[in-house]
Design a protein around this nucleic acid. Structure first.
Lengths: 176, 176
DNA sequence: TATTTAGTTCTTTATGAAAAGAACCAAAAA
DNA sequence: TTTTTGGTTCTTTTCATAAAGAACTAAATA
């Protein structure tokens, strides 16, 4: 079940407003699904984060996810694996218990989720620069447009990692 | 024809490498389609930008797009409308000519494409803050995790627009 | 007035990925 | 050894949407 991720006119402002009117945990979990889906993950992954966020238990078992989220084992398995790979959640085990539990990763480094997305910036830069290679007139309006586009992505490609460094630095300081 | 937009492991580095080996305009246009698709637009929209980027003519007509991109009128119509709405391209007309031509928008403000995407940051902030509302223990590990997540998105929500302001300021200065 | 041109807007088709289902496997328990 | 538990990994189904196709429209031309 693939849903829209495309938002030509900013649908997020809507989500923000909706967020204020949510009254039940159930609703909250579903909304997390929709938001995470929009931001490029899957609906089920969002639901898992949402449930972990509002559950009073710190540890939630695999089968509790299937029950409370009304989802198949395969879907939960794939989703927790994805979240584990992303380091967003961590598996946990209990002595004398065969089940696997999951918790929100306590040491999760938020900047890493953003760093992954900066790859697109260098690709866009490369794309616009490459366009110039094909141009006969290297200084016409189209060429200028390409240069400007490339400059923007170059700027972003440099500044965003710097911002993330700033955040990480702030975190390590406050952690001391 | 929907293609992948999902890239759990950064596929963009691949795109970057591919970009270096592109030798024909045809190939370039197709790669633009794939890249723009990954970044959340459509393949056809990417092809249009790609063709405008490597065409020696500044103005390209509607039917030239259909011919060179081997696409239907409806697809081109929808795509140019989308690009026009985004201000990325501008329609142009010629006296005594009934056709509509398009060019890359000469005054396009690159930061605006990024500003649209910052909406997701405030939504994520709202989402994590809302999660706290449902929690009984407001200081346990899960609550701490939510606070940290919210703080990160708050930080980004503030810093990215500041970065875009910086870019715009630089542009107006260099334009003087 | 009839026809062509240029493009828009519905409807249909095709695709690809999220989720479900089924088959499978390893370890623990009976 | 057989069965159950807990979960993984294939295969299948479903569904949203990008693109194509078809029907339509307005303006210009014949």
């Amino acid at each position: 079940m693939k849903r829209t991720k495309k938002l030509y006119i900013c649908k997020h402002n809507l989500s923000q407003a909706i967020m204020q009117h949510i009254s039940s945990r159930q609703e909250y979990i579903e909304e997390c699904g929709l938001i995470m889906e929009q931001s490029g993950l899957t609906r089920m992954v969002g639901r898992i984060i949402g449930y972990l966020a509002v559950s009073d238990k710190e540890l939630v078992s695999f089968d509790e996810f299937t029950e409370v989220l009304q989802a198949s084992k395969s879907s939960i398995s794939t989703s927790v694996k994805m979240l584990t790979t992303m380091n967003l959640i961590k598996p946990a085990t209990i002595p004398g218990d065969r089940k696997t539990y999951y918790r929100l990763a306590p040491d999760y480094c938020w900047s890493q989720i953003m760093r992954l997305k900066t790859g697109v910036l260098s690709t866009m830069y490369a794309m616009f620069m490459k366009g110039l290679d094909f141009r006969i007139r290297k200084a016409d309006k189209t060429s200028q447009w390409l240069v400007e586009a490339a400059e923007f992505y170059k700027f972003m490609e440099q500044e965003i990692p710097a911002l993330l460094d700033k955040w990480e630095e702030r975190k390590t300081k406050s952690g001391e």
